[in-house]
């Protein structure tokens, strides 16, 4: 990685590129929301953001990034405030193309844990804040993209607790659990882009960032990664992307 940008900037730019114009995205606060806002400003002007505080179509104002999904900044110039339950019901109905979220602990099938560390839910070693809307985003959006720092302690073979299910235990287990739609398609990390083998649904390397080897990706992952037939190298963030991104967060609230 060069010194032109930091890890959060890299994540936000690469994540933004995953979003297409004329789509809808359910975005969590922090880097996912920044990435969605960047995509809307740069290449996807007809992208509509949905925020779990019950907000549709906000225009995130530069320097006014929300710190929660329920505070006033999150609804800046929104087109509708339907309430929390109804915002999620748009996703259940199939109106949300992409769910964009972070993750505390993620396993080889893309399942996420943001609830507890330790074996016993009721007597946890570490109590984490919980799902919030992550479980619903993972269950209901047409496709989910996870955006996270790539660290060995985050990428574990089995999560202690499945808060937000992706491919569950692989091999049709998502469908069998009653999750008829969606699933995690990509994991955008500070080292590259991971996807899933179409059959086994195990995580695989699909792209690495410039200067990152697949060995480095493996060394920072707590389970065996598969590889896509062809591994791409991502384009580094352009000056234009970085400039637009930095303008959105001049206080460096989420860009660090």
């Amino acid at each position: 990685m060069t010194e032109r940008f930091n890890a959060s900037e890299l994540l936000a730019v690469i994540a933004a590129r995953q979003l297409r114009d004329d789509t809808t995205v359910f975005a969590g606060v922090g880097v996912p929301l920044l990435a969605a806002a960047l995509a809307k400003r740069r290449h996807a002007p007809r992208l509509t953001m949905v925020i779990e505080g019950g907000i549709i179509g906000p225009e995130i104002a530069p320097g006014r990034l929300p710190v929660s999904t329920n505070e006033m900044r999150a609804g800046h110039r929104a087109t509708m405030l339907p309430g929390i339950t109804d915002a999620f019901l748009f996703a259940q109905r199939g109106f949300v193309d992409v769910g964009f979220m972070g993750g505390a602990q993620i396993d080889q099938y893309g399942n996420i844990n943001t609830s507890v560390l330790g074996a016993d839910y009721w007597h946890p070693k570490v109590r984490l804040p919980g799902t919030g809307g992550a479980n619903d985003i993972a269950s209901l959006c047409r496709e989910v993209i996870i955006v996270t720092a790539h660290e060995k302690r985050r990428f574990v073979e089995r999560v202690d607790f499945v808060t937000s299910p992706s491919w569950v235990r692989g091999d049709g287990s998502r469908r069998a659990a009653g999750l008829l739609f969606g699933g995690v398609s990509r994991v955008v990390t500070t080292l590259g882009i991971l996807g899933f083998d179409p059959d086994s649904k195990r995580m695989r390397i699909e792209a690495t960032h410039p200067g990152v080897s697949t060995d480095t990706v493996r060394q920072n992952t707590g389970f065996a990664l598969l590889e896509a037939p062809r591994i791409e190298t991502t384009e580094p963030p352009s000056d234009e992307e970085l400039e637009m991104l930095r303008a959105l967060d001049p206080e460096r609230r989420f860009l660090g």
């Binding site: 609830s115 269950s139 499945v162 009653g178």
Partner: peptide, 9 residues
């Protein structure tokens, strides 16, 4: 509903 299935919740 179609949510919360397949999770430890």
């Amino acid at each position: 509903a179609l949510t919360m299935l397949g999770s430890d919740l």
